[in-house]
C-alpha cells in the first residue's frame, strides 16, 4: 500500500473534476453548531458477548463509557429511519435529560429514575447522545454512523 488514495485524490483535485458538492460543504459548516462546550466524550466500549449480536431485524447494540457513565444504545433501522432505545447507567437522577442528536435533528428526552429513554424516526447518518446532569459537565457519546 503506497497511499495511492492520497495521490489519486490529489490528482483528481488538481484536475478540478468532481468538486465537493455544495450540500457537503454546507453540512460541514453547520456541524459547528453541534459542539457541546465543556463536554466529556464517551468512547465506544466492549459489550458483553451476549449483547453484541446484530439481530436479523436490523437491531444493533452499542455501548459508550466515560467518567463513570455508561450509555447502552439499541439502535433499530427500519423504513429508512432510525429508532434509538437507550439507558444511561447509573441513572443520573432528577433533573437530567439526554439529547439524541443527528446533524439535522435533535430530540430531547427527560430521564426517568431508570435512566431509560427512546427516540424514534431519526434520519440515517451520524448519531450522538448527550447526557446533561445538574452540576456536572455534559457527557456526549462519540458520533456513530448508522445507515440501513
Amino acid at each position: 500500500m503506497i497511499n495511492e488514495d492520497y495521490f489519486l485524490a490529489a490528482l483528481r483535485l488538481a484536475a478540478g473534476n468532481d468538486p465537493i458538492p455544495g450540500h457537503v460543504s454546507a453540512a460541514a459548516r453547520d456541524a459547528y453548531g453541534l459542539r457541546v462546550p465543556q463536554a466529556v466524550t464517551a468512547a465506544p466500549a466492549e459489550l458483553p458477548v451476549s449483547a453484541e449480536v446484530r439481530g436479523s431485524d436490523g437491531c444493533h447494540m452499542v455501548r459508550f463509557v466515560a467518567s463513570g457513565l455508561t450509555f447502552d444504545l439499541e439502535v433499530t433501522v427500519g423504513d429508512g429511519l432510525i429508532d434509538v432505545a437507550g439507558q444511561v447507567i447509573p441513572p443520573p437522577g432528577e433533573g437530567s435529560h439526554v439529547d439524541v442528536r443527528t446533524p439535522h435533528l435533535t430530540l430531547t428526552r427527560r430521564l426517568p429514575a431508570t435512566g431509560q429513554f427512546a427516540a424514534t424516526g431519526l434520519p440515517p447518518g451520524w448519531l450522538s447522545v448527550v447526557c446533561h446532569r445538574p452540576g456536572h459537565a455534559p457527557v456526549q457519546t462519540r458520533w456513530v454512523r448508522i445507515r440501513p
Binding site: A9, V24, A28, A31
Partner: peptide, 25 residues
C-alpha cells in the same frame, strides 16, 4: 481535499458525504 480523499477511496456520493461529515464531527 477531504472530498477528494473520500472519493479516491472509492465511495459513492452518499458515503463520501458521510465520510467527510464524520471527519468534521
Amino acid at each position: 481535499r477531504m472530498w477528494a480523499v473520500a472519493r479516491a477511496c472509492g465511495l459513492n456520493e452518499t458515503d463520501a458525504a458521510d465520510a467527510v461529515q464524520g471527519a468534521w464531527l
